[in-house]
Design a protein around this nucleic acid. Structure first.
Length: 215
DNA sequence: CACCAGGCCCTAT
DNA sequence: ATAGGGCATGGT
């Protein structure tokens, strides 16, 4: 049994199923993924709520409003001019599929990833978050939490995003549901524990756990 | 007051 | 290939 999969199992046993991403539907996932770039989720939530309150959190509605208007609506997320443009870029791509998520889901994973990465403002992490949580494709999402947590656990991760991603995928079954849970658990554990104890020596993921939860 | 937060793009070496 | 700057709000 490899160490990566072991860690997943410990997290799952301790925290349980996470039911991620925190969104009501696939489009909300996409909007959140773009808005949360280098930004706290709290600030993103305000923007999402604002869009919902104004009944605008739908693809065609956002496609229709102006970039300037959209920027105002998402102000709380920071980088709002940039992110408004990025959302617009995604929406133009989405129009090519008639705003129909089912047409997108039918596409092959690797080609779909390339398409997303070709959209200006969608980088690897954002693309993978969308692939996994909006389109339900089996990709492992690498983010700041993932790198920080596994580095603290003693892993020596590459600097290259795709190399890190490949490392995790090689050590786990290729299962969208598992990737979904794992990333959610990493974020949850980071927020619950790692962040509060930056140099903790007793995280339950380590061999010697002082919290009585080592399995 | 400073620093950080679920990145990404562009430019200069 | 890789480093550094810009983007901007809200919380601690």
């Amino acid at each position: 049994m490899n160490r990566v999969y072991e860690i997943y199992q410990k997290l799952y046993k301790f925290y349980g199923s996470q039911h991620w991403w925190p969104a009501e539907n696939w489009f909300e996932v996409v909007v959140g993924a773009i808005l949360t770039q280098n930004t706290s989720w709290k600030n993103v939530e305000k923007s999402i709520e604002n869009l919902k309150d104004k009944d605008l959190l739908e693809p065609f509605k956002l496609y229709r409003i102006s970039e300037e208007k959209l920027a105002e609506l998402i102000k709380s997320s920071g980088f709002y001019n940039l992110k408004s443009k990025r959302l617009k870029n995604f929406l133009k791509w989405l129009k090519g599929y008639d705003f129909d998520v089912n047409k997108i889901k039918q596409k092959d994973l690797l080609n779909l990833r390339e398409e997303l990465l070709s959209i200006k403002g969608i980088g690897k992490e954002t693309a993978d978050s969308i692939l996994l949580y909006a389109f339900e494709k089996p990709v492992f999402v690498v983010d700041a939490y993932t790198k920080r947590m596994f580095t603290r656990l003693g892993f020596r991760l590459s600097k290259d995003y795709d190399e890190i991603k490949d490392f995790f995928e090689k050590n786990l079954p290729k299962d969208a549901q598992l990737f979904n849970e794992f990333h959610a658990l990493i974020v949850n554990h980071s927020k619950e524990y790692c962040k509060k104890v930056p140099n903790c020596k007793k995280c339950f993921l380590k061999e010697k756990c002082e919290w009585g939860v080592t399995q």
